[in-house]
């Protein structure tokens, strides 16, 4: 593998892992606060899955691409070195926002990991089989609750629509194109962000229609980009501060 391709794969995996780690951390903020106990457990379980996926991706970086120890990489990096999307880093806000974010993000992940089933970089292809199976439960959970709340009366439906309107440009930002997309596509790593974005729209559209939600016009709304290039909302810095607080007390401690 040449150096340019190696760098491109590293960039792709880092973004995927950072998304999973940061959204995993956000999901964990629902522990103890969920509106009902099952939801408390669901968001906590999804947090555990996501952080597990992030760890497995960081391990690939370490074992195959000359990356650092996953814990060091996750806890010590500066905010500008993270490449998560803005959608993942925003605070949990209200349950409607967190649920809609979860719905849009997990369908995006499902589409991404589906495409990685054919990835020519073997470690990523192998991991993607496992992650894809686990994500089934995330999308199953999201679909069920989006539908239930959209059929739960006028106020409930309106709040879900408002959450969709707010989340949509952020979710479109998941697919921020990178300069190496063509290189990665040519090497058979994955089809590139634009292709995934189109597939994602095709996946969520019928689900939203079924829930009587109006998909905002994708052509009329600029996606919220920046995260993949290290430009973040102020919320990421605050999150990292809290997430790494214990780790930084003694970065070399064995746990």
């Amino acid at each position: 593998m040449n150096a340019a391709l190696q760098k491109a794969i590293t960039t792709l995996i880092t973004s995927m892992a950072d998304d999973a780690l940061i959204l995993g951390h956000r999901n964990s903020e629902w522990t103890g606060l969920g509106p009902i106990m099952e939801e408390d457990i669901a968001f906590s379980s999804m947090a555990q899955d996501k952080i597990g996926h992030a760890w497995a991706l960081y391990r690939i970086l370490q074992e195959h691409l000359g990356g650092e120890d996953p814990d060091q990489f996750a806890f010590i990096r500066a905010a500008k070195d993270f490449t998560c999307c803005h959608l993942a880093e925003l605070p949990i806000s209200s349950y409607d926002f967190s649920l809609m974010r979860h719905f849009l993000f997990d369908h995006a992940e499902a589409v991404r990991y589906e495409s990685l089933q054919q990835c020519s970089f073997e470690p990523l292809q192998q991991l993607s089989k496992k992650v894809k199976g686990e994500l089934k439960y995330h999308t199953l959970h999201a679909d069920a609750w989006v539908l239930q709340l959209c059929r739960g009366g006028e106020e409930s439906q309106q709040r879900m629509q408002a959450a969709l309107d707010r989340c949509f440009p952020l979710a479109a930002g998941i697919f921020e194109p990178g300069p190496q997309d063509a290189l990665l596509a040519d090497a058979g790593i994955y089809p590139g962000e634009q292709t995934l974005y189109d597939k994602w729209l095709n996946t969520i559209y019928p689900l939203l229609v079924n829930a009587s939600l109006n998909l905002p016009d994708p052509a009329a709304i600029p996606p919220q980009y920046g995260g993949r290039y290290g430009n973040h909302t102020p919320h990421l810095q605050a999150l990292l501060q809290e997430m790494g607080e214990v780790f930084r007390l003694d970065p070399t401690a064995g746990w």
């Binding site: 099952e38 939801e39 457990i41 669901a42 379980s45 999804m46 439960y137 959970h141």
Partner: peptide
């Protein structure tokens, strides 16, 4: 199915 997530990652309720 009440919830696809349970007391451990491998269980549903």
């Amino acid at each position: 199915l009440r919830s696809p997530f349970g007391s451990t990652l491998c269980r549903a309720i």
